[in-house]
Amino acid sequence: MIGTALDIMSQVAPPRGAFVDHPVGRTFGPPHDRPCNADVLRKTLAEFPLFTHCGEIRALACEWPADGGREWEEDLRAELLHER
């Protein structure tokens, strides 16, 4: 699997877990960015043969946004807290 929530992935321990540090709901990148979608998917599939044991989680070399800033976390927190 590929997931954006490392804490959840760590608890459920899928057979092969690829972690992408993107906001939830944007696993393969921003809307309408086909090169980014393909890039994340290509990196995910490249990890498949590298897993050695059940429950292993491997982090993909992807950042949101590309400069590695974390400002998106406040927007995401607000979005999640308004979810009812």
């Binding site: 696993t27 393969f28 979608n37 998917l41």
Partner: peptide, 11 residues
């Protein structure tokens, strides 16, 4: 807005 970002069918 773009289901491809959670369902990369085209990718």
């Amino acid at each position: 807005q773009d289901p491809e970002i959670v369902f990369p069918r085209a990718a």
